[in-house]
C-alpha cells in the first residue's frame, strides 16, 4: 500500500541520488560538484517519476512525464558542459549551463504550455532564476544550502498534492528528501572535507529548474484554481537563501546558515498558507 510509494517513489530514488551526489563529498575534485550533484538530483526526480506512472506511451499519453525527462536531460547536459568546459572560464561555463535550462523548458508539452513562445519565456525566466540562485550557491559550501532547498521544495510538493496531482508531488518530495539527507551527510563530513562548492553549478541549476518547471507542470494541470500567487511563491521559494546574504547576517556563519533555511521556509510556508486559505481542505481518492 503506502509502503510501496515510500520504497519505490521515495527511498530507492533517494538512494540513487545519494550515490551520485555523495561521490562529491567523499572524492572532492575541483569540478566534481558541477557534475555529480546535478546528476544526482535529476536522477532522483526521474527515478521517482518513473515509479509513479505507466511507461506505456511514455510522454505521449502521460505528458506530465516531459517534466522529469527534461530535468534528467538538463542534469546530463549541465554535467557534460561542466566537464567539457572545465578548462574554460567560469563565465562561459556558467552561461552554457544556464542556457541549457531553455531547451529543458521547451520540452514541456503540457496543458497551458502548448505554445512555443510561452515555453520559451518560461525557459528564459527559469534560466535567470537559476543564475540568481547559483551566484549564492557557488559561494556557500555549507550544509545550509541543500537543507534550505529541501524545505523550499516542500512548497511545490504541497501545492501539487492540494491540486490533486499526487503523481507530481511524489518525485518532488523525493528530491526534497534527497537534499535533506545530503545536507546531513555534509554536516557530518564537515570537518574532513573542504569542498569549495558543495551543491555547485549543476546542482543549483537543477534545483532551480525543478522548482520552476515543477510548478509550471502543476499549474498546467491544476483544475482547482490554486491562486497564481501561491504557484509563483512556490517556484521562487529556493530564492529564500538570499535572506542570508544581507550584510549584517553574512558575517556570522551560524546566523548565515539559519537565515538560508528560514528564508526558504518562509516563502514555502506562505505559498502553502495562501493555498490552504483559498480552499479549506483537500481530499484525495486513495
Amino acid at each position: 500500500m503506502e509502503t510501496q510509494i515510500l520504497i519505490f517513489g521515495i527511498a530507492l530514488p533517494v538512494i540513487v541520488g545519494m550515490v551520485f551526489s555523495a561521490w562529491q563529498i567523499f572524492r572532492p575534485k575541483p569540478y566534481d560538484s558541477n557534475i555529480y550533484f546535478g546528476l544526482g538530483i535529476s536522477a532522483t526526480l526521474f527515478a521517482s517519476a518513473m515509479s509513479q506512472d505507466s511507461l506505456a506511451n511514455f510522454t505521449t499519453q502521460n505528458r506530465w512525464l516531459w517534466f522529469p525527462l527534461s530535468i534528467i536531460l538538463l542534469g546530463a547536459l549541465s554535467a557534460i558542459s561542466c566537464v567539457l568546459l572545465r578548462c574554460r572560464s567560469a563565465t562561459i561555463r556558467n552561461l552554457v549551463v544556464f542556457a541549457s535550462v531553455v531547451p529543458a523548458a521547451l520540452l514541456l508539452k503540457i496543458p497551458e504550455w502548448e505554445h512555443f513562445t510561452n515555453r520559451f519565456i518560461l525557459g528564459v525566466g527559469a534560466a535567470i532564476f537559476a543564475a540568481l540562485l547559483t551566484i549564492i550557491v557557488q559561494k556557500r559550501n555549507g550544509f545550509s544550502i541543500p537543507m534550505a532547498f529541501s524545505f523550499a521544495l516542500v512548497a511545490p510538493c504541497a501545492l501539487a498534492i492540494l491540486s490533486g496531482f499526487a503523481k507530481l508531488a511524489v518525485p518532488i518530495a523525493a528530491v526534497s528528501c534527497c537534499l535533506g539527507f545530503l545536507s546531513l551527510v555534509r554536516l557530518l563530513r564537515k570537518s574532513q572535507t573542504q569542498t569549495r562548492d558543495f551543491v555547485g553549478l549543476s546542482g543549483g541549476v537543477v534545483v532551480a529548474t525543478i522548482a520552476a518547471l515543477g510548478v509550471a507542470t502543476g499549474f498546467g494541470y491544476d483544475t482547482k484554481n490554486i491562486p497564481l500567487t501561491a504557484w509563483i511563491l512556490a517556484a521562487i521559494a529556493p530564492l529564500g537563501i538570499c535572506l542570508g546574504e544581507f550584510a549584517p547576517i553574512r558575517s556570522r556563519p551560524t546566523l548565515l546558515a539559519w537565515s538560508h533555511i528560514i528564508g526558504c521556509i518562509v516563502l514555502a510556508a506562505t505559498a502553502i498558507l495562501i493555498t490552504v486559505v483559498a480552499f479549506n481542505s483537500s481530499e484525495r481518492l486513495g
Binding site: N62, R63, W64, I110, P111, E112, S163, G164, F165, A166, K167, L168, G220, Y221, T223, K224, F279, S281, S282, E283, R284, L285
Partner: peptide, 25 residues
C-alpha cells in the same frame, strides 16, 4: 471528462487531475 462528479468537490479535483482522467489533457 470535466463533468465528473462524486458529490465531493475535493475528490472531484483529484479525479480531474492527471492521477485519473487528466481533464486538461
Amino acid at each position: 471528462t470535466n463533468s465528473v462528479s462524486s458529490a465531493n468537490e475535493n475528490l472531484d479535483g483529484h479525479l480531474r487531475s492527471p492521477d485519473f482522467f487528466s481533464v486538461k489533457e
